[in-house]
């Protein structure tokens, strides 16, 4: 839940990049960190293993300016995608306001995407949240692999596997080249900010 500070007139919004291991969550944040350097006041924080897998999370604060007289501070996080890290994944999800689900388009990863989405739904339930109602954007990542002759799932199949019931907005993307990374990010920010707008109009609690 977004934290509203009526004294500083500041809102902290938590957006989490979720998805299977090696899907490209960290790469999304790395791209944002480079591309939007001027909006980021501090270093990206990463807690990773020696071989670059996320061990706990990545953290990137991002200023988007003022809305309704409040400074909005977006805090991006990634979870560790590896199945064995569910305990830490849950800790990162605590207080989440919006989610980008980064699915891996490689045909080989079809089953892992589905499992990871199921795991997200379960973990949200443990925080009394619902995957059907929380702001959510789907990103079908690694589309660039198709050009290299690596088998990639057709978008229709990914939609059917992951998004048939949820009907979340989706984007095909390539996090390494940055293709649609910013678009995905802007969409989740706008959906998340919309969802807390009502609360902002009430001016927090007085």
């Amino acid at each position: 839940m977004a934290l509203i500070n009526p004294k500083k007139r500041e809102v902290q919004v938590k957006i989490v990049y979720y998805g299977p291991g090696r899907g490209g969550k960290t790469t999304n944040l790395e791209f944002i960190n480079e591309k939007f350097r001027s909006r980021i006041k501090s270093e990206m924080v990463t807690v990773k293993t020696y071989n670059d897998r996320t061990l706990f999370f990545d953290f990137l604060p991002f200023d988007i300016g003022m809305i309704k007289g409040y400074t909005i501070k977006v805090q991006f996080y990634t979870v560790p995608g590896q199945v064995k890290y569910n305990a830490t994944r849950k800790l990162v999800l605590r207080g989440v306001d919006g989610i980008v689900f980064v699915a891996d388009s490689m045909t080989l990863r079809q089953e892992m995407n589905i499992r990871s989405l199921e795991n997200l739904a379960e973990n949200l339930v443990s925080f009394n949240k619902n995957i059907e109602t929380i702001p959510l954007v789907m990103q079908y990542n690694k589309r660039d692999l198709e050009k290299e002759g690596i088998p990639v799932l057709p978008v229709e199949i990914m939609e059917k596997d992951l998004n048939a019931g949820l009907k979340a907005p989706y984007y095909t993307a390539s996090a390494v080249s940055g293709d649609n990374v910013a678009v995905t990010m802007k969409r989740i920010i706008s959906m998340t900010v919309m969802s807390i707008r009502e609360k902002l109009e009430l001016g927090g609690s007085e």
Binding site: M1, L3, N5, P6, G95, N128, G204
Partner: peptide, 13 residues
């Protein structure tokens, strides 16, 4: 458990 926390200006002060 999630965090239904809201703080008033007075509380923060």
């Amino acid at each position: 458990m999630d965090f239904p926390f809201d703080f008033s200006k007075k509380q923060l002060e």
